[in-house]
Simulated scan of single mutants.
Amino acid sequence: MSFFHKALASFGIGSATVDTRLEKDTYRAGEVMRGEIIVRGGQVEQQVDSIYLSINTTYVRESNDHKHTEVATLQKVKVTEPFTLAASEEKVIPISLTLPFETPISAGKTQVWIQTGLDIKNAVDPSDKDYIRVEPTSLAAQILDAIGRLGFRLREAECEQAPARFRGYYPFVQEFEFVPTGSFRGHLDELEMVFLSQSNHSAEILLQIDRKVRGIGSFFAEALEMDESYVRTTITLHDLPTLPEKFQQIISKHI
């Protein structure tokens, strides 16, 4: 009977299970996530080589005019050393994991989840998937708010594969696409922004200012993307009192 149960466990039937329980489901980028992993033994004793946690998201990669959805791992950590899990045994393992500053914000189509897995040789590895909501850092939130105060409305937010020259730790950036509804309406088609790097004290951003071209040659300007300007700048805590004015000046120079 034991051999039969072991055979079933190798296919994931009657095997160990894992369940991660976080203190909450909403976190700010850069915040420490705390909780516990509950591991329950199955019908037979099993050797667990490790338990790992990973923070994941998806991004869009374009290839040959086709869009593909890829999974990106922002961080992966090993939680335990090898151990033996007896049949029906329950283990509770406390965890803490820092959410990277570059974790995409929960906006638009963006999703972020915590994946927990048990590494068990010669068996289907049990896993658990928990989605979380990610809020921007305080600085990033004020940057987004400043753009909104200038009359820009967020139309879309999506993680896309980053060009090599703008690639940081990860193969993607989260792009925020805004449409002008205030004084820039009629001058710009759209404003796009990405966070290239972040900390509690500063954020490097890239603005793509898409001008609304008029008159003769406008078609060719758009075809050659001559109507777009790129501005790379760093925002610090010292900029916050005059942040809307700073963005106003940057954008006005390129219309």
Rank of each mutant, 00 (worst) to 15 (best):
H5R: 12
G215A: 00
I216Y: 05
K246T: 09
E102N: 08
R61T: 13
E81D: 11
L196N: 05
F176M: 11
A140N: 13
P94D: 07
F247C: 04
P244K: 03
A140I: 11
A9P: 01
I132V: 10
V48Y: 05
E204G: 13
G14Y: 02
S218D: 05
Q111C: 02
T233D: 04
E158M: 11
G215R: 00
S197K: 10
G182P: 06
D65M: 14
K24S: 08
E102M: 12
Q47M: 15
V124A: 10
M33D: 05
L118T: 01
S50P: 02
G117V: 00
L188N: 00
L22E: 05
I114V: 09
S183Q: 15
E175F: 10
M226F: 11
S202C: 06
D130I: 12
I235N: 03
T137C: 09
R133N: 10
P163C: 06
A7G: 08
I216H: 02
K212S: 04
I250V: 11
I250A: 00
L53M: 03
K253D: 10
G148T: 08
H66I: 15
L196Q: 10
Q208N: 09
R167F: 07
E158S: 11
S252P: 02
G30S: 09
W113Q: 01
E204C: 03
S2D: 13
H187T: 06
T84L: 14
R232I: 10
V60S: 15
K246N: 04
L196H: 09
G182Q: 06
H238Y: 11
Q47T: 15
K212I: 04
I216K: 09
A157K: 13
R21D: 06
F4E: 13
V48C: 01
Q249G: 06
S199R: 01
P171E: 04
S199P: 08
E245L: 10
L139Q: 08
G35L: 11
P136I: 05
F166T: 07
G217F: 01
L8W: 07
V112H: 02
H201Y: 13
T242I: 05
H66E: 15
R34P: 07
H187N: 11
Y59K: 09
I209W: 00
Q115E: 07
T84A: 12
G186F: 01
D119H: 08
V60K: 15
S138W: 02
S252H: 04
R149P: 05
Q198G: 08
V18Q: 04
H254K: 06
E135C: 06
A141L: 10
S50H: 05
E23I: 13
S96H: 14
R28L: 11
E204Q: 12
S127K: 12
I55L: 15
P104F: 00
E23M: 14
A223N: 03
P244E: 00
E135W: 07
D227Q: 05
T84R: 09
L150V: 04
V79I: 10
Y131E: 12
D239T: 01
L188C: 04
A7L: 14
